[in-house]
């Protein structure tokens, strides 16, 4: 059994249009075509097996000069966790002062990734 997914590679501005074929034959393998370099293949397989994204957002802020503090994940998190991550951020309210890089949420969703402040306020 095999199925094919089309995607655009974002490893560089070339934007190769790739086709990733999933071959399930005892073990699952991926065949990437359309890429013009090895980074394309790497990206394609990662997107099929464990796509991850950085999440940038804000949290509520007390006694800052703004109502919101910008934050991000310290590393990319699995794509399917983005919604959960947003829900967690909604419940947080930070009190200043905060320094850029301060950990706002430790070990987000048990992913061993933190939410950190992206500015001082």
């Amino acid at each position: 059994m095999s199925k094919t997914v089309e995607m655009i590679c974002i490893s560089c501005p070339m934007g190769c249009k790739m086709a990733i074929e999933t071959i399930t034959n005892g073990v699952t393998r991926y065949k990437v075509s359309g890429n013009k370099c090895p980074r394309g293949e790497q990206y394609g397989v990662k997107e099929m097996t464990n796509p991850t994204r950085m999440v940038t957002s804000t949290v509520k802020m007390k006694n800052g000069h703004l109502n919101r503090l910008p934050v991000r994940t310290s590393d990319a998190i699995p794509k399917y966790k983005i919604s959960e991550c947003m829900a967690v951020l909604k419940a947080v309210e930070v009190e200043g002062p905060v320094k850029v890089g301060d950990v706002i949420i430790n070990n987000l969703l048990g992913l061993e990734i933190d939410i950190i402040a992206t500015r001082s306020m």
Binding site: M54, T56, T58, P70, R72, V100, T118, R119
Partner: peptide, 18 residues
């Protein structure tokens, strides 16, 4: 507040405020 800044200047990916 999104990331994608600084890859050339700092060789790392930063958000705008960072």
């Amino acid at each position: 507040i999104h990331n994608g800044f600084g890859l050339h200047v700092f060789k790392e990916e930063l958000t705008g405020p960072e």
